[in-house]
Design a protein around this nucleic acid. Sequence first.
DNA 1: CTCATATAGTTGCATATGCAACTATATGGA
DNA 2: TCCATATAGTTGCATATGCAACTATATGAG
Lengths: 153, 153
Amino acid sequence: MKLKNSINKQASIIYRNSHIFFDHELAPYQIGSGQQFFLLRIFEFPGISALEIAKMGHYDKGTCARAIAKLCELGYVTRVVCDEDKRSSQLFVSEQGAFVVKQTQVVLKKWNDILCQDLSLAQQKQMEEQLTNMANRAFSYINKRKQENHAEK
Amino acid sequence: MKLKNSINKQASIIYRNSHIFFDHELAPYQIGSGQQFFLLRIFEFPGISALEIAKMGHYDKGTCARAIAKLCELGYVTRVVCDEDKRSSQLFVSEQGAFVVKQTQVVLKKWNDILCQDLSLAQQKQMEEQLTNMANRAFSYINKRKQENHAEK
DNA sequence: CTCATATAGTTGCATATGCAACTATATGGA
DNA sequence: TCCATATAGTTGCATATGCAACTATATGAG
């Protein structure tokens, strides 16, 4: 049994093509692959804060700030400064945003179906679980290193 | 059995963290995540052309050109204009490049081990195969659309 | 209360990437 | 031979992203 250590390569191909796909499919709504995750999360958790979304997707807070800024500019998302903590804002999907959310959900489902085209439901479920474990290992490793570097200072 | 359609999300986390990892580990050699794939392929296939590598990783030829340009600037790779076709060049890893190749192989192996930490060899093999299939589906779909768009013109 | 520290978010900078237009070379047919 | 077309590579432009420095606000110790 030969291993090719090609998991990284395949993940890269999947990721890069997913960007091309989302950019193409979401172009009519003036958003790109970089906003879809954030828009869907705000829809799913009304009132969520920027940092909470960043944590969910293991994104840098700068990346997150820019994605949300774009969604606000486009009028898809509104920001309400938090009364108890004025540093933080609560995010909500606007009326126009709700339509784009629906389209984005369709696009995400379509991409998922393309990826899983030849898989049974059980296989799909298994892939989700294994990829989730893998993503957790990837993130945990990097996060641990960062925290150690930070502690050194 | 509930599906979360989270494959895209997990692939994104794996990809983004792999970049952080490679950038960090390869920094001593002045290369980043964007060059590792190209350097390894040139080592593996001496005399290969830029476009051939681009096809292997399903990269855009512009991305490929820039990665190779950087490897040449750093002296890790040399370019020999092809005698039979002066548009094309043959690529080779230089003596200094050979050392960096070895380090890059170690780094890639290390990342693969992090990702597969809790998997048996059989599970790892299965993941490689399933991700390869998934990457093929992703690429084929995008490629087909591009060709159709191109044919329209 | 005051200051040190922590936290939410923003922004400048750098890299990786895709796309499209461009250059240079090659090739096949009239 | 000459031109239309195809191909290898380059480059300008745009987006997505991470990091680090920064601002504004909050909080806890004295």
